[in-house]
C-alpha cells in the first residue's frame, strides 16, 4: 500500500521531534524561567508578596471581571455565531470580519478609546449621564471587547458543520423548536461553547495594555494583577514580579486543565 510520505517512520519522528523542540523553546523555557526566578525567594517572602492584601484585591478584581466578561461574551457570542451562520443579511461579511478586530487592534489603543468614550466628558459618558471609566465596570467592558472573538470563533465552525438533519429529525419526532434547541442543538455546541468561555476567561486574567487606561489603577479598588507585576519590574524586583506572575500562571494553567477535563467528559457523554 502506498501511504503518504509523512507516515514514513523517519519523517514522522522528525516532525514530532521538531514540534517538541519548538514548543520547548517558545513556551516551556520562558514559562519555567518564571518558576526559577521566583524560587529565589524564600517561602515566607513569596507569600508576603504573592498573597498580601493588595495582591488579593487585585486577583479578586481580575478574576471577577474576567468571569463577568466571559459570561457576557458566551451569551452574546453564541447569538452572534448563530446569526452569522444561520441567517443571511446585508453586510454579513463586514460583521464577520470585524469580529477579529479586537485581536488585531493594539490593546493600548482599545484602552484609550474606551477610556475616552466612557469618561464623563466622553460621548458615552455624556449619553449615560455618569462616568463608567475608572470603575470595575469599565474593566469588564474592555475585557469583553478584547476577548470577544473567542466564543464566536469557537462556536462558528461547529455550527457550520452541524447537520441540519439532526434538528429536522428532532422536529419530525415531535419536539417543539425550544426543545430542539435545548436538547439537540445546545448539547452539540456545548464543548465548543465551553472552550470559548474558558479562553475568553483566561485572556481576561492576563490582559494588561487596555485595562490600565480605563481602570484608574487605584490600589484595593481598580488595580488589576498584571499591573502589580509591572510595578515590581519597574522597581527591578524581578523575583517579586515572577512570584505574582507564577500565581497568575498557575491559575491559567488550572483553567486550561479544567477545560481539557470538561472536554473529555462531554465527549464521553
Amino acid at each position: 500500500m502506498n501511504s503518504p510520505i509523512y507516515y514514513s517512520k523517519k519523517i514522522k519522528f522528525f516532525i514530532i521531534f521538531y514540534t517538541i523542540v519548538y514548543l520547548v523553546i517558545i513556551v516551556i523555557i520562558p514559562l519555567s524561567s518564571i518558576f526559577f526566578k521566583s524560587s529565589e525567594l524564600n517561602l515566607e517572602k513569596f507569600f508576603s508578596i504573592a498573597f498580601n492584601l493588595r495582591s488579593l484585591y487585585a486577583y479578586k478584581l481580575s478574576f471577577l471581571s474576567s468571569l463577568f466578561s466571559a459570561f457576557i461574551n458566551s451569551i452574546f457570542g453564541l447569538i452572534t455565531a448563530w446569526v452569522l451562520v444561520r441567517y443571511d443579511f446585508l453586510g454579513k461579511k463586514f460583521f464577520d470580519t470585524i469580529i477579529d478586530f479586537p485581536i488585531a487592534l493594539p490593546t493600548a489603543v482599545a484602552g484609550l478609546t474606551f477610556g475616552n468614550l466612557y469618561s464623563k466628558e466622553g460621548e458615552m459618558g455624556k449619553l449615560l449621564g455618569f462616568q463608567i471609566s475608572y470603575t470595575p465596570i469599565a474593566v469588564v467592558i474592555v475585557l469583553t471587547f478584547v476577548s470577544l472573538p473567542f466564543v464566536v470563533r469557537s462556536i462558528q465552525p461547529v455550527l457550520e458543520d452541524m447537520d441540519l438533519e439532526l434538528e429536522q429529525a428532532a422536529a419530525s419526532l415531535g419536539a417543539n423548536p425550544i426543545q430542539t434547541f435545548f436538547y439537540v442543538t445546545l448539547p452539540y455546541l456545548f464543548p465548543a461553547w465551553l472552550t470559548g468561555f474558558i479562553l475568553s476567561f483566561a485572556r481576561g486574567i492576563g490582559e494588561y495594555g487596555s485595562v490600565i487606561f480605563v481602570s484608574g489603577n487605584i490600589p484595593y479598588f481598580t488595580e488589576i494583577s498584571p499591573l502589580l507585576v509591572v510595578m515590581r519590574l519597574e522597581q527591578f524586583d524581578y523575583a517579586g514580579a515572577s512570584a505574582i506572575a507564577l500565581v497568575l500562571l498557575t491559575f491559567s494553567f488550572c483553567l486550561l486543565v479544567l477545560l481539557n477535563i470538561l472536554e473529555n467528559w462531554t465527549k464521553i457523554k
Partner: peptide, 18 residues
C-alpha cells in the same frame, strides 16, 4: 481619583478627558 501608569497618560486624563 486615577493613578495612571505614566506622566503622559496622566496628562491625557487631565487634558483630553477633562
Amino acid at each position: 481619583p486615577i493613578l495612571d501608569t505614566s506622566s503622559r497618560s496622566s496628562a491625557s486624563t487631565f487634558i483630553q478627558r477633562k
